[in-house]
């Protein structure tokens, strides 16, 4: 009765790989952006904030559409990747990763930014008066103090990437083993009226999402998710 097809398993593997890679990259990319946003007094803060938050409010198909145009053969990014010999990104796993980075960016940046802002100026000043260089301070004071923010950012990015559908469909299509992720697989099952299979995957995602939030609240009691 527990019956996942090889296609289902392939979609699960692909989804976990996509979400895992996206999360790692987002923590690396999101940290400096969030740090800058948390500390800057620059006039660019608001526009940059808005751009970073945009994927949260934009319909995923819109985001996917523009990414497709940009990365397509006539788009500037597409020309660049072709010139670099990387070929075209749409309909590849790499393309999905790039799209997911944009799609889930706010879910990494916002908790990190909040965590950095909560630390305030004082611990950094104390560290400086104790001979710690700014980089040293970042690793020995900021990272440990912002740990709950990193946990939230990682979990939210991971979970959000797992559930992406619209962007994937626009940018990656539906190629088995390469771009067919869970949400697309569920869609295919439903289209084919395979409701039992659809249930297994959809139900699994539901339980997974619930567990993720439970774990998050368990470890970060003071930081229930995000602000909208």
């Amino acid at each position: 009765m527990f019956s996942l097809s090889p296609d289902d398993w392939s979609a699960i593997r692909l989804t976990l790989a996509l979400a895992g890679l996206t999360t790692i990259l987002l923590l690396l990319i999101g940290t400096p952006i969030a740090w800058w946003l948390a500390r800057t007094a620059s006039a660019w803060k608001r526009p940059v904030s808005a751009v970073v938050t945009l994927p949260m409010v934009l319909p995923p198909t819109v985001l996917g559409f523009y990414l497709l145009v940009l990365m397509g053969p006539e788009g500037p990014v597409g020309r660049l990747t072709q010139a670099l010999g990387l070929g075209l990104l749409p309909f590849t796993f790499s393309g999905l990763v790039v799209a997911s980075l944009f799609y889930s960016l706010p879910f990494a940046v916002q908790p990190l930014q909040q965590a950095f802002e909560a630390i305030g100026e004082r611990p950094l000043e104390v560290a400086a008066t104790l001979r710690a260089s700014p980089l040293d301070t970042f690793f020995t004071v900021v990272l440990p103090l912002a740990r709950p923010g990193f946990v939230t950012a990682a979990v939210m990015s991971f979970a959000h990437t797992i559930g992406e559908f619209g962007v994937v469909l626009m940018i990656g299509g539906n190629i088995p083993d390469r771009t067919r992720v869970l949400s697309v697989q569920i869609y295919d099952h439903v289209e084919a009226l395979e409701f039992t299979q659809g249930h297994w995957l959809a139900g699994g995602l539901l339980v997974f999402s619930f567990c993720v939030l439970l774990v998050l609240y368990r470890f970060n009691p003071g930081q229930p998710g995000m602000r909208p």
């Binding site: 004082r122 611990p123 000043e125 104390v126 560290a127 400086a128 008066t129 104790l130 001979r131 710690a132 260089s133 700014p134 040293d136 004071v141 440990p144 103090l145």
Partner: peptide
Amino acid sequence: LPVHQRALGYVFQEASLFPH
């Protein structure tokens, strides 16, 4: 000279110990 290169000690109004 950046703060971290000055041979000083600074005691703030609040102790400001590192909580971690």
